[in-house]
Amino acid sequence: MTLLLLSFGLVAVALPAMRSRAIGADPRWFARLSTVALSLGLVCVMAALATSATIGALHAVTRVADDPATHLAPEGIVGACVSAILLTLMLIRGATIALRARRVRRDARAEGWLGEHRNDGSHDLVVLPTERLFAYSVDGRDPQIVVSQGLRRMLDDDFYGFVIDHERAHLRAGHRRSLLIATVVEGLLPFFPFASQSSMALRVAVERAADEDAAGEEPARRRRLANDMVRVSSRARVACGSELTVFRAENLTACPRSSRGGVAVALAGLVTLFAGALAVLAHATGDVSPYLALL
């Protein structure tokens, strides 16, 4: 049962990496579904560990498992101890990552006296006095889009508008939550190779989704923005550089596509996975209740 729940979780975490070809076709849906899959996967893995630890502890208290061989099973005493330790480590690591992300978000927010501020209705647009090339957004109660003066100077008005719309799309879609989930999954499941691949797939999808929202559907403008993106990236010399920018530019040059069929299949798969995990959890609760009654 624990193994089944664990398998559900790991399959859900692996799904975005296995379906990464869909990033190009429909990045918005890919980002949404990947966020759900990674969250669901993480919850299943942690629920599996919690179930194993709880049932093992109840076995120990009620002395049901006297056969030493059963101690090594996931719900045996040794298995329960290992699960409890893993779960504790995961909770500590998860909290550390979440707190660090919170501190970074607080530090990244520019105070009123720093840089030039302009309120654009839904957010504060801040231009910071530095020649470094960057643009990012900070969500929360007073959302900000922060752009460096160096980047602002380098861009023409159309591409600058695209950058602002790109960041606005991140704020509107709540992409920071998706990135936080990607970071947590990557940090909590470092030995599961699909975890880092799925996290990366989600990161790429989030950038592509914001590109699609900002670029609109006019082919000539999309081609121009794609060329500018490659030019700006090569001048910024960012470490991700060529690969991600070229991929984003290639997809901007291509006409926007929609893959309703793929989305429907992915959605059905996730619902099935979720229903399966719920069924296993319900079964696990059934197994625990006699012990609770005994206590």
Partner: peptide, 25 residues
Amino acid sequence: DPEGALTHFLAGLDAPRRRQLRKLL
């Protein structure tokens, strides 16, 4: 900060993440 979960227009990546990115793309 790559752990900061901020959304960037031009994101920098460390070496392991660049490898993952290449594989994925």
